[in-house]
Each structure stands twice: as structure tokens, then as C-alpha cells.
């Protein structure tokens, strides 16, 4: 009976993941391995960026004054738009995780505040390969070299995510593994300021147990995959801490604004 319960939970979380996220690893891999019917538009310099802005991300850069700003600020703005959309998707995903909506509302806020960026960077790896990153719902591909060529501090934004992604992708997780991993990131009992820690720890324990069993059956040849993934949780926390510091620096020194939802998340984070 317990095993059946665990399988049901894994299935519910996987279905919620497939339903709520516009992009997933299997979709991204089809595009990144050249198997999509239409290949993504490659953004590798200022000209191709301008073209992409007119077609792929017109909604994000049009009619809000952003189109006259410098390239780094425009890219930063598009990153923010994508982040906001992903936070929205993650919120819906979290609400579909059994037990989450029954938690104290303040704790739901806390879990999202501290979990969304870790989850976002874990999922971002699915859209990355060593040469670049899928953007605009998989319709564009921006090269790592182009992102590195931007001026400081913007050039420091994505490289740590690529470095993480290359190691993370080497674990060869599929979407069913990632769904449970993302749920485990969100339902984390040691976020600062949680009211009902015990309740969340129980939820987390259940999800982590299901993740462990799922990895055993889905990756029988990699006995150490579970502990490796637990280490990735710590790596993601570090990645988010550094990202939050960089965003604060950009906010202080650059002529750019931060979306109100992201401001809420970053404020008093670490």
C-alpha cells in the first residue's frame, strides 16, 4: 500500500510538471539536437539580436521604452520577463503538489520566495547545452559566447548557470526525475522564517523518499545518483545566493528596473 501511495505521488507531481511548464527537457532536447521541424533562430551578435527582438520577443521589448536602451539592459529585461513567467508556472506547479495548498499561507509564500530561483536554475539546465541557451519558448537560441561578450556586470550573469548546467546535465535526468527534484526544492523545511516547520519537513521527507525510489527504478545503473542530487540542492542554493548578489549590484549601479514580483522575491532574501 505504501509503495502504491508513493507511485501515485510521483505520478501526480510528474503530471503537474508536464501541465504547468511551457518548456521541459524532452521538448528542449528535440530542439537542441536538431530534430525539431523548425530550428531555433540563433542569436550570436547585435544584428541577430535586433532581428530576434523584432520577431521573437517583440512583446517584451516593444512599447515600453526598453527598445532604446543599451543591449545589456534589453537582454536583462527579457531575462526578467522569462523569470516572471517561470515564477508564475512554478506557483501553479507548487499548488498542484499534494499537501502544498493546505500549508499556512505565509509558509507557502516563504517556500516560493526561497525555492523559485533554485527551481528555475535547475530547470534552465534543460534548455542549455555547452554552446548556448534556448529562449523565446524554444524559438530562439542565444549563444554562450554572445552572452559572455556583453559588458560587465551583465557578462557575469549566465556563465555560472552554464557551468552548473553542464555538470547537472551530465546526470542525465529526465522530466519525471526533474519533476520530483523541483518539488523537493520547493517543499524544503529549512527556509528562513517558516512557521510550521514540522508540517513541511514531513512533506519534504515524503517527496525525497519518492525521489530516491524513483531514481532507483529509473536509473538502476547509477547507484549514487540520489546523493549526487542532494549535493546539487546545496550547489543551487549557492548559485542563487551569488545570482541575488549580482542582481543587487546591477540594481544599484545600472539604469535598469527590477520587476515588482522579482523585487518581492529578492527583498531580504539572504
Amino acid at each position: 500500500a505504501q509503495l502504491a501511495d508513493q507511485k501515485t505521488l510521483a505520478k501526480q507531481i510528474y503530471e503537474a510538471y508536464l501541465k504547468n511548464f511551457n518548456m521541459n527537457k524532452s521538448k528542449a532536447r528535440v530542439i537542441l539536437t536538431g530534430k525539431a521541424s523548425t530550428p531555433p533562430f540563433v542569436i550570436h551578435d547585435m544584428d541577430t539580436l535586433r532581428l530576434a527582438e523584432k520577431t521573437l520577443v517583440a512583446k517584451m521589448v516593444g512599447n515600453n521604452g526598453i527598445q532604446n536602451k543599451e543591449v545589456e539592459v534589453r537582454i536583462f529585461h527579457c531575462c526578467q520577463c522569462t523569470s516572471v513567467e517561470t515564477v508564475t508556472e512554478l506557483t501553479e506547479f507548487a499548488k498542484s503538489v499534494p499537501g502544498f495548498v493546505g500549508l499556512d499561507l505565509n509558509d507557502q509564500v516563504t517556500l516560493l520566495k526561497y525555492g523559485v530561483y533554485e527551481a528555475m536554475f535547475a530547470m534552465l539546465a534543460s534548455s542549455m547545452n555547452k554552446d548556448g541557451l534556448l529562449v523565446a519558448y524554444g524559438n530562439g537560441f542565444i549563444t554562450r559566447e554572445f552572452l559572455k561578450s556583453l559588458r560587465k556586470p551583465f557578462s557575469d550573469m549566465m556563465e555560472p548557470k552554464f557551468e552548473f548546467a553542464m555538470k547537472f546535465n551530465a546526470l542525465e535526468l529526465d522530466d519525471s526525475d526533474l519533476a520530483l527534484f523541483v518539488a523537493a526544492i520547493i517543499c524544503c523545511g529549512d527556509r528562513p522564517g517558516l512557521v510550521n516547520v514540522g508540517h513541511i519537513e514531513k512533506m519534504q521527507e515524503r517527496i525525497v523518499q519518492v525521489l530516491r525510489l524513483h531514481l532507483q527504478s529509473n536509473h538502476p545503473d547509477d547507484a549514487f545518483l540520489f546523493p549526487k542530487l542532494l549535493q546539487k540542492l546545496a550547489d543551487l542554493r549557492q548559485l542563487v545566493t551569488e545570482h541575488a548578489q549580482l542582481v543587487q549590484e546591477i540594481k544599484k549601479t545600472e539604469d535598469t528596473s527590477l520587476h515588482p514580483l522579482l523585487q518581492e522575491i529578492y527583498r531580504d532574501m539572504y
Binding site: K59, M60, C81, V84, E85, V87, T88, T91, E92, K95, L105, N106, Q108, V109, T110, L112, K113, G193, H259, P260, L261, E264, I265, R267, D268
Partner: peptide, 21 residues
Amino acid sequence: LKEKHKILHRLLQNSSSPVDL
């Protein structure tokens, strides 16, 4: 905490209200 995270709070309570980009 809810007061300091109005948009997150709204997303949690009402999924049908989109966030402006």
C-alpha cells in the same frame, strides 16, 4: 510576510490573474 509579497500572495490565491510583464 503576505503584506511584503503581495504579487506572490495573489498568485497563490488566484491563478487566473496574470502578472504584467
